[in-house]
Structure formats: structure tokens, C-alpha cells
């Protein structure tokens, strides 16, 4: 919202602006440990000013992809801090999660190199409702439920509004958590005997095929002593391969495999294309646990 306002202000003003070249960090996932610095250097280090401008905008959408908490995994961050951020001809826009930012702040004092640090606002119920409109308009989803009625204090009940209000509260306004909770609350209508169905109700009276339950944050299962270090590492880096996770926690790949298997069984960790990530539905619970366990989050 802040960036949109800023661009609007620029458009409204009477000054003349010229377009600056924008360079974005191209890696969707984390490069190998010894290539992290090289990748940054390749993309931003040898930047030549464009013919019509001596300034540029550089964007790193996910700073977590530029480091790994290991002996050699922070060299790219050192390089970014010491060589790139000091270049005043580049306007840097860097996106990073809260946990990653806290960690990098503790070891590299990145905040000192940033003019402005802004936190994304929490998504409200209305914003979530608007965001999910494309899906909810396409598929007939029922939001009416007795559980939602008992949770709501308002008499004039709009089921959809109440559902997303509740979803916003449970997801703490975090987009990925909201999506995961939304998906987990969907239930499909059971097929019943068609003849019986025709007898009992007309087409219009039929309930929707999909029904959304009341979204509730899952509580954290009982965890072993070392499990929290794995969860912290996944929260810190967003996504990791098994090998990267092993490097990040300083254990052997074999030890990590066993632990990860146990965490996957508990549905705390998901795996997609060799990449491990924390199940977003558990973000709030894991965050709160790590905070209570004295981690820097």
C-alpha cells in the first residue's frame, strides 16, 4: 500500500520523471552455498550505468534466498552489506521475512544500511474477502455454519463477511497462513442417492458443493528438544533442501532426514520439489513457541 501511494504521489506531482532501469535478483530458489556471492556479484556487482541514466533500482524480492546460516553461507550478505548497499547510485528494494530480518540484523546490522524499513500491514477480513473473490465467485462455496454463528457476536450476520473476519483473526493477517487455513477448512458435500435427493429438494434448495468450516489455527503437537531448532531454521530461510537444512543446523544429512520425516508425519513440515517448508497453517503457533523458547524471532 505504501509503495502504491508513493507511485500515485509521483504521478500526481508536476515534476518530470524519467524511467530508471530496474534490476531484480533472478533466482527463485537459493543457489548453492559457494555460489551465493557469485550470483549476487554477477547480477549486481558489475552493473554498468545505463546509457541515459547513472542511477538504477535493484530489487531482491526474497533476501532469504541469498544466505544460508552456515560458515560460508553468509558471505553473500557480507558482500551485499560491504560492497553493494554502500553504492549510492542504486536504490535498493529488499524483501525479507520477520525472522530472517531479525537474524541478519543481529549479525550484520543491515538496518544501519537501510533508509527506511517498513512492515507489511496485516490483511483485514475485507481485504481477504476481496483477495479470495476470484476463487469464491468461480466455485460455489457455502460459509454458513453453526460454529461460525456461535463465534459471532453480531445479530445481522453476513456469513461470508464473518468468515473472512474470522480467517483474518486466526491467520494474524498473514497471506500464506490465510490461504492454507482457507484450503484446510473446505469440505466437499457427500454424494447422496440421486432419487432420494430429487424427492426431497429442488435444484435451487441444494447446499453448495463446497462448504467452508470455521477456520481455526491448529495447535502445536508435542515436540522433541531438537525439533524447535529445525522449525526455526525453516522459518528463517522459508524454504530449504534437506542438505541445506543439515548445513543450517550443523548436523549430518542422516540425522536431518530422520527428524524431518517425523516432522512431516506431524504435518508441521511440507515438501515440494525437494524443498522443505513449514506448513503455513502452523506459522502462528510455531512463532509463538519460538518466542517463548527464547529464540530471536
Amino acid at each position: 500500500m505504501i509503495i502504491a501511494d508513493f507511485i500515485q504521489d509521483l504521478a500526481d506531482s508536476s515534476y518530470q520523471y524519467k524511467k530508471l532501469p530496474i534490476q531484480s535478483f533472478q533466482y527463485g530458489s537459493r543457489p548453492e552455498n559457494d555460489k551465493l556471492r557469485q550470483c549476487l556479484q554477477k547480477q549486481f556487482g558489475n552493473r554498468l550505468p545505463s546509457p541515459d541514466s547513472d542511477r538504477a533500482i535493484a530489487v531482491i524480492p526474497c533476501l532469504e534466498n541469498c544466505f544460508l546460516r552456515s560458515m560460508n553461507g553468509l558471505e553473500a550478505i557480507d558482500y551485499l552489506r560491504d560492497s553493494l548497499l554502500t553504492d549510492t547510485s542504486i536504490f535498493w528494494i529488499i524483501g525479507v521475512g520477520q525472522v530472517g530480518w531479525q537474524y541478519l540484523q543481529a549479525i550484520s546490522a543491515l538496518e544501519s544500511y537501510s533508509d527506511h524499513v517498513t512492515h507489511l500491514e496485516k490483511l483485514s477480513g475485507d481485504q481477504l474477502s476481496q483477495w479470495f473473490e476470484a476463487v469464491t465467485n468461480e466455485i460455489d462455496i457455502g460459509f454458513q455454519s453453526s460454529a461460525l454463528r456461535s463465534e459471532s457476536s453480531e445479530n445481522d450476520l453476513n456469513w461470508r463477511t464473518q468468515y473472512f473476519k474470522f480467517l483474518s483473526k486466526e491467520s494474524k493477517g498473514v497471506d500464506s497462513v490465510a490461504v492454507q487455513l482457507f484450503l484446510e477448512t473446505l469440505q466437499i458435500r457427500e454424494e447422496i442417492d440421486k432419487e432420494k435427493e430429487n424427492e426431497e429438494s429442488s435444484e435451487d434448495d441444494q447446499p453448495p458443493i463446497l462448504q467452508a468450516k470455521l477456520p481455526i489455527n491448529p495447535s502445536l503437537p508435542s515436540l522433541g528438544g531438537e525439533d524447535v531448532y529445525f522449525l526455526y531454521s525453516l522459518l528463517l530461510h522459508r524454504t530449504l533442501t534437506e542438505l541445506q537444512l543439515a548445513q543450517s543446523v550443523g548436523l549430518s544429512l542422516l540425522d536431518v532426514k530422520d527428524k524431518i520425516q517425523a516432522l512431516r508425519k506431524l504435518r508441521l513440515v511440507e515438501q515440494q520439489d525437494n524443498l522443505l517448508r513449514l506448513n503455513p497453517a502452523y506459522y502462528p503457533a510455531v512463532y509463538s513457541r519460538l518466542d517463548g523458547d527464547n529464540f530471536l524471532v
Partner: peptide
């Protein structure tokens, strides 16, 4: 410098 980095990257270290 190595020792600082060793501590900064240990899973057990309290960075506060």
C-alpha cells in the same frame, strides 16, 4: 573472524 562466524551460525547461539 572465523570464531565470530562460528558462533553466529550455530543453532544454539543466543543472538540477543
Amino acid at each position: 573472524n572465523i570464531l565470530y562466524r562460528v558462533a553466529q551460525t550455530s543453532r544454539y547461539t543466543q543472538l540477543k
